[in-house]
């Protein structure tokens, strides 16, 4: 494991801040009725996507989780988040040309096939992994999902296939304990998703999903293993969502409000603040630098909002041509 340089650490920090600012922008625009689709906030989940996807090469494949609709996974990889905002506003400059509602797409950076259906990524990622293995260039596939998605059959079929064929796939599960409004303790007897991986002979590691460095380090091991041809791994990141399942929905567990104490206790471990404190101690960050990074992110998100508003809607005449490839 190589030591992370100051530049690496600042890249992670900047990515966390930009993810949070853009998430806040989408949340506000949703509340103002300016998004033409729904939005599932990443608030609380930022460290998982940022920490893990920072390790992706440009030629890797990446299936995103729906938290933040792609922001935590695309921002660290240099994908301009204004295309996310524009897509949600239905503009032609969005990452799906304004015709998909929200789906994150970046062919050049291997962001393929983000999905509305939870747990969709497992078997598709097996396919990306199969392609990567056939290509023989050391590419790998990253597959992000939640703990709810794990309860679908695709998880088990993919885990089995990837293990049997030693496919280079890194599964990152963001376990926030909730699937929509339903706590998983009431729908599965399995507390740790990592235990399921082990059942398929796939290494499963549990990490603190609020600690971006812990996520980064665990992913680093899994990535190395996959690139060496040793097969898939699963990293279970224990995390928490601070907001409701999606914007405008009640924040409930079953049908009753979620526990304020539980939310407050996780707020104590806010992933952005935890990392900020760590970097301040290491003197990688200073108060002035924190302020500068925050200001840049504010300016960037304000510019993205304006850019999206000023962008045209797609030409509906395109739609019939989008059904079949020539």
């Amino acid at each position: 494991m190589k030591e992370l340089s100051k530049q690496d650490l600042l890249h992670l920090y900047r990515s966390l801040i930009r993810t949070r600012k853009f998430d806040q922008l989408n949340v506000r625009l949703a509340a103002e009725g300016k998004l033409l689709t729904f939005y599932h906030s990443a608030h609380g989940h930022e460290a998982v996507g940022v920490g893990a996807s920072s390790l992706a090469r440009d030629d890797d494949y990446l299936f995103i989780h729906h938290r933040g609709h792609g922001l935590p996974y695309s921002i660290p990889r240099g994908i301009d988040p204004k295309s996310c905002v524009a897509e949600h506003m239905g503009r032609a400059t969005g990452w799906g040309g304004g015709i998909t509602g929200f789906h994150a797409v970046d062919k050049e950076k291997g962001v393929l096939s983000s999905a509305g259906t939870i747990g969709s990524g497992f078997v598709l990622s097996a396919g990306y992994g199969l392609a990567a293995k056939k290509n023989g260039r050391g590419q790998i596939a990253f597959c992000f999902s939640g703990d709810g998605g794990v309860q679908r059959g695709q998880f088990h079929e993919a885990m089995n296939l990837c293990a049997a064929w030693k496919l280079p796939v890194v599964f990152v599960v963001e376990n926030n304990g909730m699937a929509w409004f339903t706590p998983n303790c009431d729908t599965t007897a399995v507390e740790h998703v990592a235990d399921l991986a082990k059942a398929y002979q796939v290494p499963g590691e549990i990490v603190d999903g609020m600690d971006v460095l812990a996520v980064y380090r665990a992913t680093e091991k899994a990535v190395e293993r996959a690139r060496k041809g040793e097969g898939p791994s699963l990293i279970e990141c224990k995390t928490f969502r601070y907001r409701p399942h999606s914007e405008g929905r009640p924040d409930v567990s079953h049908y009753e409000p979620r526990s304020k104490e539980e939310i407050a206790s996780w707020m104590e471990r806010d992933p952005v603040r935890l990392f900020e404190e760590k970097l301040l101690k290491k003197k990688v960050l200073t108060a002035a630098l924190i302020e500068e990074i925050a200001r840049e992110a504010d300016e960037e998100s304000a510019a993205a909002e304006k850019f999206s508003f000023d962008s045209p809607f797609p030409d509906p005449a395109r739609l019939p041509d989008m059904v079949y490839a020539p």
Partner: peptide, 21 residues
């Protein structure tokens, strides 16, 4: 020869196709 997992077979097909196969 794949396991009797239609979702995995079809999903892997889609993924590999999207990746250029």
């Amino acid at each position: 020869d794949a396991p009797l997992s239609e979702l995995a077979i079809a999903g892997a097909t889609v993924g590999a196709a999207m990746a250029g196969y």
